[in-house]
Design a protein around this nucleic acid. Structure first.
Lengths: 187, 187
DNA sequence: CAGGATTGGCTAATCGGCTTAGCTTTTAGC
DNA sequence: GCTAAAAGCTAAGCCGATTAGCCAATCCTG
């Protein structure tokens, strides 16, 4: 039997891609095994199981999202930075719904958990956006949570088909960016 | 064998309660059967299966949420109404995380699906809040989506333990209400 | 290059959860 | 009371996750 030449990173990458295609709930070990060309039990040589796989996909997704948002923001400030960050984040979630879903509900086990580091990088990218607004030091955490709620809420609702009516969704998102900009600026 | 006197509504109510206790993912037919005092296959006399059960729980949850938000808003307008609606919504999600989770990702099958009606009632409650602000007719849908994203995002992130840092979460939520009020008022 | 150790793959098997089939008893309507 | 539908049960099938244990390929060392 020829070796497939797998390693943990390859399995996780394939798992993330598969989750994007069939949904996180549809990601089974059997389907993933077939995708990478081995029998199901062989996957356990690379990842600890479904929960471990989910965690690793989450780390990958958070890192990619942080990269995307960070790159989008570069060179912009204020409203432009906000718009760039929000658009990049939503685009990432819509393109990669499965791996993003894997990030929900996983808590870092400790301070040296790579999950915590990846999450922090994403937060840092949004924190940079807030520097373009005049926000009290004590309000930064609140504003960060608000931005995260807004982006996360919109993106997951859209990705879950939660918006029913006819109004254009892209237009709603641009409206939302303008709204957030107003709210962050108003005193 | 004495009859348990079950019907679909009782099974769904027990399922919703169980989902709140053990999480939607932990809601198994076996556990639910044990809870209502029958063997697993007997549940299929009342609900069509796991997917059907999930849909029915979603209908129940949306209806309850609509009632809670609608009742909270009554008698208020403007910022007070916004605050009341947001608080009621978040409280509902935090008290009933399992049944609320059941509402995510279910799409109404048709216009006479009770799910659509329940969802519409919840939307109506939020629409009433917007009447206290001077919003262009053409912007109402956008504002509604924004409010829904904000509330949904915050509540689900908190319920999934998505907020890591130390800042007080209730305080963040009040800040978020003030922020939304500013944004809806600003021109 | 030989040879052990490690690694990555496999088959077989267990366990748990969902679901269906088919039987039996209760209950409701007449 | 009698019949038919409803609501329960046991048995059984399927599928997915996981573990155990075996074997071949690769790697490291002398």
């Amino acid at each position: 039997m020829p070796r497939a030449g797998l390693d943990a990173a390859a399995v996780v990458a394939a798992g993330a891609a598969l989750a994007d295609e069939v949904g996180l709930a549809g990601l089974t070990m059997g389907l993933l095994a077939e995708r990478v060309g081995v029998r199901t039990p062989s996957l356990y040589k690379h990842v600890g199981g479904q929960e471990d796989l989910n965690r690793r996909i989450a780390v990958l997704a958070l890192g990619e999202a942080a990269d995307a948002v960070g790159a989008a923001v570069r060179g912009y400030a204020g409203r432009d930075a906000l718009a760039a960050a929000a658009r990049a984040f939503r685009a990432f979630v819509l393109e990669h719904p499965g791996r993003y879903a894997a990030t929900i509900g996983v808590a870092p086990s400790g301070p040296d958990d790579p999950l915590a580091a990846a999450g922090q990088r994403l937060l840092d990218a949004f924190t940079a956006v807030l520097r373009g607004y005049e926000i009290e030091e004590s309000d930064v955490d609140h504003a960060l949570r608000m931005l995260r709620s807004l982006c996360h809420g919109f993106a997951t609702l859209q990705s879950a088909n939660g918006f029913q009516w006819s109004a254009d969704i892209d237009e709603s998102f641009e409206w939302l960016i303008a709204f957030a900009d107003r709210g962050l600026r108003a005193r």
